[in-house]
Design a protein around this nucleic acid. Structure first.
Lengths: 231, 231
DNA sequence: TTAATAGTGTCTCTCAGACATTATCAC
DNA sequence: GTGATAATGTCTGAGAGACACTATTAA
């Protein structure tokens, strides 16, 4: 075995955080990409990302939140580390490590961010990805696999909705995230038995355009809850 | 938003790979630690780990395999990335990122590695961890959580056994990994229905010391298989 | 009243756990 | 045969899906 090197700064890899930002559009899950401001690949659609800054960041998640706030004007989102990719060829600037985060954002927060001056988000159908710079395609694949898998045994899809939501809305998000239809009465039964939700007291809301208004709920715990069984 | 920095080498974090090496001892899962050769914390028990070396490594997993081969004389193990931790305080040399891998090793491979000159592995009961340097305790916690959770819906525990094993042996590993007793006939039923195993043809083995010998099996696929349902 | 969605009740089928039974070996 | 573990067969209860049915609103 070679003698240990000091691994001085000159041989350290570049370290970046890339955020796979997902929202729920009219027609299903949408990936939010922005045009890059700087080289390389300036002007092209890509993941929201940036350098880990040792002089600023308390940890990796703090770097992710700083980047989200700075480039996307988004704060307080559901954020989960997926994994890291590294190698010599993924970034022309040199051997690099990308730590991937999955972030979920309600559509209305996106609109508010754009109104507050964030560069426009392109909402992309994840099944119709355009060619992307770097290895962003595989980063996205990894994050969406995590989303789809974790959706079926946790409250993760709820973070694509606002604070309050109806059961039919919640069921629809689960269906989008998992990719299959769910049984209505079983869905209600399970969520109620598991005590995942609490009624928003006394207020049932009128639906936007028609028909019977539905009861509003919120998550009983504001953090992710994992189930012992499937949705 | 601040102007983008070039993130020249001088502001890059240190990048290391740390490997949570797990085996199955007589009395259950055991964490394998080695004494550190170099400062900081030379001589103390710690995870097998090392620097990512941009000049050598094709990707992060290659770094992990290089470190395992170099410091532990182990090759071809089951290896899975868990997640990354980073921050200014976890390593006295500076702001650092540790990419954590879970590695599973059959006990006999460990013994062979030690015989081949690897520094001795201390087999530690994960429920009785001694104080550890850096933030290795939380890295271990993260990797063991992954092991315990994934054990119940995949062939992961099988990688703690050698190439061939009996069903009672396999059941015992699952029980150790998951931490609960399993139902015998249900265990057999599920593994058989899922076509996870194949019989080692015509050879049933004699047990070491006594009683009825059991049929030997091997994994039908040498890679990890995830189940649609729980073990 | 009608139309459409929200929400409930009930039946059935599947599957996992419990446990009894049979099989196969060493001695 | 005896004793011990390996392997199989069967029963039962819990829970998920299917679907019919009731509830509540706007128009």
């Amino acid at each position: 075995m070679a003698a240990p090197s000091s691994a001085g700064p000159e041989q350290r890899p570049i370290a970046t955080v890339d955020i796979v930002l997902v929202t729920l559009g009219e027609e299903g899950l949408r990936l939010c990409l922005q045009r890059r401001e700087h080289e390389p690949h300036a002007g092209e659609l890509a993941l929201v990302g940036g350098y880990v800054r040792p002089e600023q960041d308390a940890d990796i998640e703090a770097a992710a939140r700083r980047i989200l706030a700075g480039k996307a004007r988004l704060e307080g989102l559901y954020l989960e580390q997926v994994r890291s990719f590294g190698g010599p060829g993924r970034d022309p600037r040199g051997w690099s490590i990308a730590i991937i985060y999955l972030a979920l954002v309600p559509e209305e927060r996106l609109i508010a961010a754009e109104a507050a001056g964030a560069p426009r988000f392109e909402r992309i159908d994840p099944d119709r990805l355009p060619p992307l710079p770097f290895d962003h395609a595989r980063l996205i694949t990894a994050a969406l696999a995590r989303l789809r898998s974790k959706a079926s045994y946790s409250t993760l899809p709820a973070f694509l909705l606002g604070d309050q939501f109806t059961l039919p809305e919640l069921k629809a998000v689960y269906e989008q995230a998992i990719g299959t239809k769910l049984n209505d009465s079983a869905f209600r039964r399970k969520l109620m038995e598991m005590q995942i939700l609490e009624e928003v007291d006394a207020k049932a809301s009128a639906t936007a355009e028609r028909k019977r208004p539905a009861q509003l709920y919120r998550l009983a715990r504001r953090t992710l809850t994992e189930f012992d069984r499937t949705v």
